[in-house]
Design a protein around this nucleic acid. Structure first.
Length: 281
DNA sequence: ATGGCAGAAGCATTCTGA
């Protein structure tokens, strides 16, 4: 099963290149961020014509996330589910459409667009940390024994120094500060693993290049788009790649898609569980 | 230290992103 995440920086502007990419790569599940459109104006038909189901959670101009899937999308959750009343922190954190979750083929997909935070002295930075802390409790609420969970999206955080082209210049700043990384690690709690780092330990691999200053041509990038998988899934992970070719499109997104391949069939664990079930009968 | 590039809204220019 192929699962991809892509900050497309406007679904309507990027539609044709996304469709073309899907026809080539044939992902089973595609998680989008920064769709920048209200749900009624999301272009569903091109994806449906390719045989996909679509669930969207967007707003005007900013943010917006979507899950596109070849398989039935179930148990959709939009925003942080909350039993609290208006005026609570949850309401403020849900005003920006940044989280959509669903169950697909028994696999829980959580697609996030983490706030950028602007700069570390900004109120937006506080919002980012608050948002990540709420994501941490959301994830705890979502975790069930034995469940397969994939947490992916644009995290706007370089997890390590090696995820920045010029750490001397950027370490400690926005997307590279200790407080952000601690908040991210508190979300992951040691139970979720960075798919990309299971296969690649070297620097020089980026998922985002600034539109400005010729950053792509100079290969001055950051790795801020991630696919995290929990323990249960890690034994099924076959690959994780960043498709930087999409950053070379005419009028590209500033992000490249990231994709994992999971082998959900024929795993030893599944076989073992089947045997266990038979034994119980 | 600042701006640079891009998209949306909406029609000149501002806001936001990372």
């Amino acid at each position: 099963m192929l699962i991809a995440t892509w900050n497309v920086n406007s679904i309507r502007t990027r539609l044709n290149q996304i469709i073309k990419w899907m026809e080539i790569k044939n992902p089973d599940i595609l998680c989008l961020q920064e769709t920048k459109v209200v749900d009624d104006n999301f272009p569903l038909e091109p994806f449906q014509e390719l045989g996909y189901e679509v669930e969207v959670y967007g707003q005007k101009s900013y943010n917006g996330v979507a899950i596109i899937s070849k398989f039935k999308i179930e148990n959709v959750v939009k925003g942080f589910t909350s039993k609290y009343e208006k005026g609570t922190p949850d309401q403020e954190l849900n005003e920006q459409k940044r989280l959509i979750s669903a169950v697909i083929n028994g696999l829980k997909i959580i697609n996030v667009y983490v706030p950028n935070g602007s700069s570390i002295d900004s109120v937006k930075y506080k919002y980012k940390i608050n948002w990540l802390n709420r994501l941490s409790t959301f994830l705890c609420e979502q975790e069930k024994e034995g469940e397969l969970i994939c947490l992916c999206g644009d995290f706007n955080i370089a997890p390590l120094e090696i995820d920045i082209h010029d750490p001397n210049r950027y370490e400690g700043g926005i997307m590279a500060s200790k407080i952000e990384r601690d908040a991210l690690n508190n979300v992951l709690k040691g139970r979720f693993f960075d798919s990309f780092r299971i296969f690649e330990q070297n620097t020089g691999h980026w998922s985002w290049w600034d539109y400005r200053n010729n950053a792509y041509e100079l290969n001055k990038g950051w790795r801020i788009d991630h696919i995290y998988i929990n323990n249960k899934l890690s034994s099924k992970l076959k690959s994780c790649v960043i498709d930087r070719s999409q950053r070379e499109n005419i009028q590209p997104s500033d992000h490249a898609p990231v994709m994992i391949n999971l082998n959900l069939e024929d795993s030893y664990e599944d076989y073992f569980e089947e045997e266990e079930d038979l034994f119980e009968i």
